[in-house]
Simulated assay, not measured.
Amino acid sequence: MRHGRIAPPKLSPRERARLRGIDFPIDTSDRPLPEGTPELRTLHQVLDGLAQLALPPTSPGNGGER
C-alpha cells in the first residue's frame, strides 16, 4: 500500500512462485476429470437455473409463470 491505496502487484503469480521456489500449477485441461466431477452440461444447467432465480418475478398477466 502506498498513500492509502492498494497498488497492483508488479509480478505475476507465476513469477512470484518461481522466485520463492514454489511449483506453479500447470494446465491440466487435457487430463481426464476426477471421478464424480459433473459434466459441463450439468454446470451450465445449474448456472442457468441460478440466473433464472435472479430475475424479477413475472406477473401472471405477462404471459409467463415462474
Rank of each mutant, 00 (worst) to 15 (best):
residue 54 A to S: 13
residue 18 R to P: 00
residue 17 A to D: 04
residue 9 P to W: 00
residue 58 T to V: 13
residue 60 P to I: 01
residue 15 E to L: 03
residue 24 F to K: 04
residue 22 I to F: 02
residue 44 H to L: 07
residue 51 A to P: 00
residue 6 I to H: 06
residue 57 P to G: 07
residue 47 L to H: 02
residue 11 L to I: 03
residue 32 P to Q: 11
residue 25 P to M: 11
residue 57 P to H: 04
residue 35 E to S: 13
residue 61 G to T: 07
residue 58 T to Q: 05
residue 25 P to A: 12
residue 36 G to E: 04
residue 43 L to Y: 02
residue 26 I to K: 15
residue 40 L to Y: 11
residue 36 G to N: 06
residue 8 P to A: 15
residue 46 V to D: 03
residue 27 D to V: 05
residue 54 A to P: 00
residue 6 I to R: 12
residue 29 S to H: 11
residue 54 A to W: 03
residue 22 I to T: 11
residue 11 L to K: 12
residue 50 L to Y: 09
residue 2 R to K: 15
residue 65 E to K: 13
residue 32 P to I: 07
residue 15 E to W: 01
residue 21 G to T: 03
residue 62 N to W: 10
residue 45 Q to P: 00
residue 33 L to Y: 02
residue 3 H to T: 05
residue 50 L to W: 08
residue 24 F to C: 12
residue 15 E to I: 03
residue 21 G to E: 07
residue 17 A to H: 01
residue 39 E to G: 15
residue 14 R to W: 06
residue 34 P to F: 08
residue 13 P to H: 10
residue 25 P to K: 08
residue 62 N to Y: 09
residue 10 K to R: 14
residue 63 G to T: 05
residue 35 E to G: 02
residue 26 I to L: 14
residue 51 A to C: 05
residue 17 A to K: 01
residue 37 T to D: 08
residue 10 K to Q: 12
residue 33 L to I: 07
residue 56 P to N: 06
residue 5 R to K: 15
residue 58 T to Y: 02
residue 62 N to F: 08
residue 30 D to P: 00
residue 40 L to M: 13
residue 63 G to M: 05
residue 52 Q to V: 04
residue 2 R to T: 00
residue 37 T to I: 05
residue 25 P to W: 09
residue 45 Q to E: 13
residue 26 I to S: 13
residue 22 I to S: 01
residue 51 A to R: 12
residue 19 L to R: 15
residue 34 P to E: 10
residue 58 T to K: 09
residue 61 G to L: 09
residue 62 N to P: 00
residue 17 A to S: 04
residue 66 R to D: 12
residue 57 P to I: 05
residue 48 D to N: 14
residue 7 A to H: 01
residue 59 S to C: 04
residue 29 S to Y: 06
residue 54 A to I: 01
residue 3 H to P: 00
residue 31 R to E: 14
residue 33 L to D: 08
residue 26 I to E: 13
residue 23 D to F: 09
residue 11 L to F: 05
residue 25 P to E: 08
residue 7 A to G: 02
residue 2 R to Q: 11
residue 3 H to F: 07
residue 9 P to K: 11
residue 50 L to K: 09
residue 14 R to S: 07
residue 33 L to F: 09
residue 43 L to T: 05
residue 42 T to A: 15
residue 39 E to W: 05
residue 24 F to D: 02
residue 21 G to W: 03
residue 30 D to G: 15
residue 14 R to V: 03
residue 60 P to A: 05
residue 29 S to N: 15
residue 60 P to L: 02
residue 43 L to I: 15
residue 46 V to E: 04
residue 41 R to A: 15
residue 53 L to V: 06
residue 9 P to L: 08
residue 21 G to F: 03
residue 65 E to M: 12
residue 32 P to K: 10
residue 11 L to W: 01
residue 55 L to Y: 01
residue 50 L to N: 06
residue 12 S to Q: 08
residue 10 K to H: 05
residue 49 G to H: 09
residue 18 R to H: 09
residue 52 Q to H: 06
residue 55 L to M: 14
residue 50 L to Q: 07
residue 20 R to M: 07
residue 41 R to N: 07
residue 63 G to E: 11
residue 14 R to I: 02
residue 20 R to N: 11
residue 49 G to N: 12
residue 21 G to C: 07
residue 35 E to Q: 14
residue 57 P to Y: 02
residue 4 G to T: 03
residue 27 D to L: 08
residue 27 D to N: 15
residue 57 P to S: 12
residue 54 A to N: 08
residue 49 G to M: 05
residue 52 Q to G: 09
residue 48 D to Y: 06
residue 28 T to H: 13
residue 55 L to P: 00
